[in-house]
Simulated scan of single mutants.
Amino acid sequence: MPTAYITAPRDDAQELADRLVTERHAACVNALECRSVYRWDDDVVRDDEAVLFAKTTDAAWDDLVAFVEAEHPYDVPCIERFDESFVEPGFEAWVGESVE
């Protein structure tokens, strides 16, 4: 069961999280506020962002990535995949039932 690590502007994060769940790309999304520092177009940028942890399935992974790439406001969104070595079996079953 993979978890997607996604960063987004705070103003866009809630809608992105809501749509990931309502459109069944993810069973659950946790959103945490953060302060990011990164290089873009040769400048150092400091932004208030949100980190989204989206719980999904192997079968839904490619659709989740395609959705985020299409709907994210950044030209190059941060999308990383974490593959868990352990997931509580009941939680894993719930995720599988919640994602198409």
Rank of each mutant, 00 (worst) to 15 (best):
R39P: 01
E23S: 12
T22G: 10
P73V: 02
P9Y: 14
D75E: 15
V45G: 02
F86I: 12
Y38G: 12
E15V: 08
D47L: 09
F53W: 10
E23C: 07
M1L: 10
D18V: 08
E15P: 06
D43T: 11
T57S: 02
V68R: 05
A50P: 02
D83S: 03
P2G: 04
A31H: 06
A50Y: 04
F86D: 15
A66R: 04
D42H: 05
G90F: 09
V51Y: 01
F67H: 08
V76P: 09
L64R: 00
A27T: 07
V21Q: 09
L52E: 00
W61V: 02
V37F: 14
Q14H: 12
P2S: 08
A60V: 05
D47C: 06
R81C: 09
E80Y: 13
A93T: 15
K55E: 06
E100F: 07
N30A: 00
V87N: 10
F53N: 11
V99S: 06
A59M: 00
A50E: 14
H25V: 01
D12S: 14
E92D: 14
Y5K: 07
C78G: 02
E49V: 00
D58C: 04
A70E: 12
A31Q: 13
E23F: 14
V65G: 05
G90H: 10
Y74F: 01
W94A: 00
A93S: 15
G96A: 13
G96C: 10
D48K: 09
G96E: 15
F67S: 00
R81S: 13
H25S: 02
D62A: 15
V95K: 02
V45E: 14
V29R: 01
T7N: 12
A60K: 01
D63M: 04
D63Q: 07
A60F: 07
V44H: 07
V44W: 10
L16D: 08
D63R: 08
P77W: 07
E92K: 06
H72N: 03
W40H: 01
R81Y: 03
P2M: 07
T3D: 12
E71N: 05
T3K: 09
C28F: 10
E80A: 15
E100G: 13
P73T: 02
A26Q: 00
A54W: 05
R35V: 09
D47V: 03
D41K: 15
F53A: 11
R81H: 07
E84M: 10
V51A: 03
